[in-house]
């Protein structure tokens, strides 16, 4: 985990509880900050500190971090870079900010990367137990987990997938567009399609893998057509979206709507009539 960090930045994490580390903000020539247990603070050579004592990563360290996270193989992650992120070997998702280069009207690459947002995946077994009990205990149904970014949707989806696999043995297809979802135990009956757009993954996956349930992360408005096709085919879809309220979900295709209330806290669980199960 985080082995792509330059020695100086990695060394600074020695005094940080990695189980509670959710995010690192690496900005060129600006203080290094980390999100530990849901709270941001600055990171110095000896752990958490005041802003003035924080480490300031150099431009070279930012570049080195990105290269190492790509496995020194930019060509193998160029599609991810075009979308503004790369996923490192242990599922750490690294968001990029820099100069976007266009070619032929489409994003060609991002150069002069100055900021990295490293999100560290966590596996919290049992964190989705309440949702499972409320929505899936009587059988698989379509469900969406809603929250703003960084509140644990992916961790909850991963655990839901594991619980569903463990307790029902249903065939689950995991469409992991960003390589984050599969960074942990998904259960013995889960098949994973990595780094494919949802449209392709749903179409090919439904035809080729004949799933009972599809689990996917971060639905965008353009993805709802694929979800509709899946639910109309009788396949339950378990997904997440960057939304706060169930009323904001563009298409009401789900049986259960779960809103998170802060980091990992389950807020409301609402159901669409007829109630699932």
């Amino acid at each position: 985990m985080l082995d792509f960090l330059p020695a100086r930045l990695y060394g600074a994490l020695r005094n940080v509880n990695l189980n509670l580390l959710y995010e690192m903000r690496i900005r060129a020539d600006k203080p290094l900050s980390v999100n530990v247990g849901g709270k941001f603070s600055f990171l110095g050579e000896r752990g958490m500190c005041e802003k003035a004592a924080a480490l300031c990563p150099t431009s070279a360290e930012v570049e080195q971090t990105l290269l190492a996270a790509c496995g020194f193989s930019l060509y193998s992650v160029e599609n991810q870079i075009r979308q503004g992120f790369v996923t490192a070997s242990s599922g750490e998702r690294i968001g990029l900010a820099g100069t976007v280069v266009y070619e032929g009207g489409a994003v060609h690459t991002i150069r002069d990367v100055t900021s990295l947002c490293v999100r560290i995946p966590h596996e919290i077994k049992g964190c989705a137990e309440e949702i499972y009990r409320n929505c899936l205990a009587d059988g698989a149904c379509s469900l969406i987990v809603l929250s703003p970014p960084g509140e644990g949707k992916t961790t909850i989806l991963r655990d839901l997938c594991r619980l569903l696999s463990l307790r029902t043995n249903l065939n689950i297809l995991v469409c992991d567009e960003r390589g984050e979802l599969a960074a942990g135990d998904l259960g013995g009956t889960a098949d994973v399609i990595r780094f494919s757009e949802k449209e392709n993954a749903f179409t090919a996956g439904i035809r080729a893998m004949r799933p009972d349930v599809i689990v996917t992360d971060e639905l965008l408005p353009k993805d709802y057509a694929a979800v509709r096709r899946a639910t109309e085919s009788g396949i339950a879809v378990i997904a997440s979206a960057h939304l706060k309220r169930s009323e904001d979900v563009p298409e009401k295709l789900f049986d259960c709507y779960v809103s998170l209330d802060g980091l990992g806290r389950i807020g409301t669980i609402s159901r669409r009539a007829p109630i699932c199960g």
Binding site: C70, G71, F72, S73, L74, Y75, S76, E78, I81, T109
Partner: peptide
């Protein structure tokens, strides 16, 4: 080796 997108490589 590895320093660039597939087209430039």
């Amino acid at each position: 080796l590895g320093r660039g997108d597939s087209a430039s490589q």
